[in-house]
């Protein structure tokens, strides 16, 4: 039985390492803030802001990779100026993430990249829902089989044939 638990321990440790790396990767590269947080506490350097492209505010020339729009959150709205590659996913009434820097002097967010929502909660729950039950079922089945083999070994069922 010790070998059995040992093998499962190794699997668990490796799984934890991958989960840890994923969480760290998300926090470093993908986590985003709301427009209100930008206004309350103006950040330095690159940030990712998530909001809704407000209806009737999108202007510019998308084919040339230039656009201005208002990005709304629950409490506050940012004016965004985008310059970069022609955006694939920009339209009004769309939730998205703008990547760039906040310019406090002109009160404009200068975005150089637009990204889709990460939906990380959905991704993580799909992996947990999809894999955890498999591991649990496998663990209890494996344990049962080991116990059954032990029971057969120890019992005198086969000696007095």
């Amino acid at each position: 039985m010790t070998a059995f638990y040992l093998r499962w321990g190794v699997v668990l440790v490796i799984a934890m390492i991958i989960v840890g790396m994923t969480v760290r990767d998300y926090e470093q590269h993908l986590a985003s803030v709301s427009p209100a947080q930008i206004l309350d506490d103006p950040p330095h350097g690159d940030v990712r802001v998530q909001g809704l492209v407000k209806a009737g505010t999108l202007q510019g020339n998308l084919e040339e990779g230039f656009a201005t729009f208002a990005l709304g959150g629950d409490q506050a709205t940012l004016s965004v100026e985008y310059k970069g590659l022609p955006p694939e996913n920009l339209r009004e009434l769309k939730l998205l993430i703008v990547v760039g820097q906040w310019d406090p002097a002109s009160q404009v967010f200068r975005a150089r990249e637009l990204a889709l929502l990460t939906h990380y909660g959905f991704v993580v729950s799909a992996y947990l829902v999809g894999l955890l039950p498999l591991l649990l079922v496998l663990f209890f089945m494996g344990r049962k089989v080991s116990l059954l083999f032990e029971e057969i070994k120890q019992s005198k069922l086969y000696q007095s044939e």
Partner: peptide
């Protein structure tokens, strides 16, 4: 989860 690009249309959620 870590070493592949997101999808052009669905983004990160395509990892599901």
């Amino acid at each position: 989860l870590l070493a592949s690009p997101p999808d052009y249309y669905q983004g990160e959620v395509a990892r599901i």
